[in-house]
Amino acid sequence: MTKCVNLDIKNLTKNILDQKSSNLCVPISVTTLLRFAIKNDLSFVDQYDNYTFEKILTILTMIVYPRSLAGLNLNPKKEENDFQTNDVETLLERICKKTYLYTSGWEIVRTQSYSEPAESTCEFEKVLLNENYVFSRPLSVTGAYFLPTRRIDGIDYPEEVFFHQMTLDRIENGEYVLQNTQFSVNHPPVIKIKQTRPYYDSSSFVTNLFNQTGDNFYDDGVLKMKLVNETLFMNKNCWYHLPQAYSLTLKKI
C-alpha cells in the first residue's frame, strides 16, 4: 500500500494512505478513527505492530464488512469498484454493535492479537458541523466536489457531484484540515476548507430555504451555516462537505 508521508497532520497519522483507484475511502476513514481511539481512549501502545493501519483496514474489509481490496495495488474491474462502495454510518453500526450471529466489529479487531487493547465498548456519534463548531476529536466527513462537463479520452461526461469520505484532523485558523486519501495534483492529501464555506445538502431543504428567505443561510439560534447544492450556489471544481460527520470513541469496561 502506498502512502504520502510526513504531512501537516497533528492528531492523526502524518502518513496518509493512497486509495488509488479503489472506492475504499469509507473504511479507510473509519480505520483512521479507530486507530486514534485505540491510542488515545485506551492508551494502548502497539509495540508489536499488530494494530497497524494496514492490518485494521484489512480486517474491516475482509471480515467485519467484506469488500474487495482491488484498486489499492491492482487495476480493479468495474464490478469490484461498485462493490466497494458503502456508507459510513452502516460501517460504524457494524463496528460498534453486535449482530445476531457475530460479535461487534470492534471486538473482532481488538482480539486479533495476543497483545490486545483493553476490553472496551465502541460508540459512534453523529454531529453537525457548522460555523460555530468546536473541535474535540477527529471526525469522518463526507466531501462533495462539483465536477463540470468534461471530455476524457474522447468520451463526454456530464457535470456531477462527486462524494468522497475524508477525515477531519483539526480546525485551525477557521479552517477544517482534512486527510484526503484520493490525491492528485489538484487534490492534495491535506485539504483545507474554511469553516464559513457553505455546506452541501442534496435535499430540497436548500431550495425551500431559499424560496422562504431569499437566502441560503441557515440559523436556528445554535447552528449557523450556508447551504448549497448543484442547483443553487455551488461552484464547480471546489471542495465542500456535508454538515453531518461522525466520531468514534472506545470506552474501557
Rank of each mutant, 00 (worst) to 15 (best):
N23Y: 11
C25A: 02
L33C: 14
P27D: 01
T13V: 00
K14R: 13
Q19Y: 00
L17V: 12
N23S: 02
L33I: 08
C25F: 04
P27E: 03
L12K: 07
P27C: 11
K39I: 10
L17S: 09
L12D: 01
N6L: 13
T13R: 03
N11G: 10
L34D: 07
K20P: 10
T13Q: 10
I16K: 04
V26G: 04
T2R: 09
K39P: 12
I9A: 01
T32Y: 02
V26F: 01
K10Y: 13
N23I: 09
I16E: 00
K20G: 13
D8H: 05
S29F: 07
F36A: 00
I38T: 10
K39A: 15
L34H: 03
T2K: 04
T13D: 08
K10Q: 15
I9V: 11
A37S: 13
K14A: 09
V5I: 13
L17I: 14
N11M: 14
T32W: 06
N40T: 03
S22G: 09
L34E: 02
R35V: 01
N11I: 10
S29T: 11
S21A: 12
C25P: 04
T31L: 13
L24A: 01
L24D: 04
R35W: 09
S21Y: 15
C4N: 13
D18K: 03
P27G: 01
I38D: 07
F36V: 05
T31N: 12
L12F: 08
I38C: 12
K3F: 04
I9Q: 04
I38W: 08
F36K: 05
F36C: 11
P27N: 07
L33R: 06
N15C: 13
I28F: 15
L12G: 00
S29K: 03
K14V: 03
D41I: 06
T32Q: 01
L12H: 00
L7A: 05
L33F: 08
S21W: 11
I16L: 00
A37C: 07
L17F: 08
K10T: 15
C4P: 11
D41G: 05
S22I: 03
D41P: 01
F36T: 08
L12T: 05
L17G: 02
S22E: 01
L34A: 06
I38M: 15
L34G: 05
I9W: 06
T2A: 07
I28D: 13
N15E: 14
N15R: 05
V30C: 10
N6K: 14
C25L: 06
V26C: 03
I28S: 10
K3S: 01
N40R: 05
D8E: 07
T13G: 12
K39R: 14
R35K: 15
K3L: 01
N11W: 10
P27S: 06
